[in-house]
Design a protein around this nucleic acid. Structure first.
Lengths: 138, 138
DNA sequence: TAACTGTTATATTATTTATATAACAGTTTG
DNA sequence: CAAACTGTTATATAAATAATATAACAGTTA
């Protein structure tokens, strides 16, 4: 599994890891049941501390994205707990609005933005369609 | 000018202030030349420290959103410095993609998302059109 | 001149992020 | 079974960020 640290990204390392794993779950690179590399392996390969990786994994578990158990390797969760969708939608909407005003303030006009958004939407729709596959957990 | 602190928002106070002002600039509530309340006034009304407000204002100045000068009250900048648009676009695109995968993971399907996005886009387009008005600074 | 502005300086506190070491407790593998 | 893996817990430390508190300074406005 590919994980990297972007020095230009001002977010903390553990958040970058979370983003990348969520991204890969979202686009199907990681599927339910897939095992994640151990916290020590990730730490070694990225040359960071074990606990930095672990804090990322812990958050992901809280979010229902992965499962972790003592002695076992972490894996992508079988069931994505989709917390209260109404709340989620309000949250997403707020983030989206902020993002768009940012975009416009930075000189991207709404037409460009629309193109950008629709490209991503089409992309995600396809991935979403082909991702209604087998779920398992033992 | 309306500013509030959201206890549920886990972002630092100064970032919340930045967001709200950018938001109001973006949607036309604040226009170029409009004066901002003094750092002390904002601090008093929100019951926070003067320097917390100031750090928000400083960031906004760095971003070219407002102008600040010794002795004078801060005001919305006349010219929005639109920093390197290519870079901005890449940044926005990355944020957008993350947002969308988050949305989908939270149980919002792409169709709902598309509706959400297009509503906001239409809204912003109108605001953008009616915002090509008078700019001034003395 | 007095009452505002932002600015600079110094200090302190709390929280977050990341590292470092070490031991513990389960699971898997040879 | 034993060794080599897993995640877990504990403790400690360092660095950076966020927020507060006071006080004085330096321009601008009324």
């Amino acid at each position: 599994m590919l994980l990297t640290i972007d020095e230009n990204d001002n977010r903390p390392i553990y958040l970058q890891i979370i983003s990348q794993i969520r991204e890969q779950v979202g686009n199907g690179t990681l599927k339910p049941g897939d095992e994640l590399p151990s916290v020590r392996d990730v730490a070694d390969s990225l040359k960071i501390n074990m606990h930095t990786v672990r804090s990322a994994y812990l958050k992901l578990r809280e979010q229902g994205i992965i499962s972790m158990h003592l002695g076992r390797r972490a894996k992508i969760a079988a069931i994505q707990l989709q917390s209260d969708t109404a709340y989620a939608e309000a949250d997403i909407k707020a983030r989206l609005k902020e993002l768009m005003t940012d975009a416009i303030l930075q000189g991207i006009n709404p037409e460009e933005l629309a193109i950008l958004v629709n490209q991503l939407l089409e992309q995600l729709k396809e991935e979403f369609k082909s991702d209604q596959g087998e779920h398992y957990e033992r």
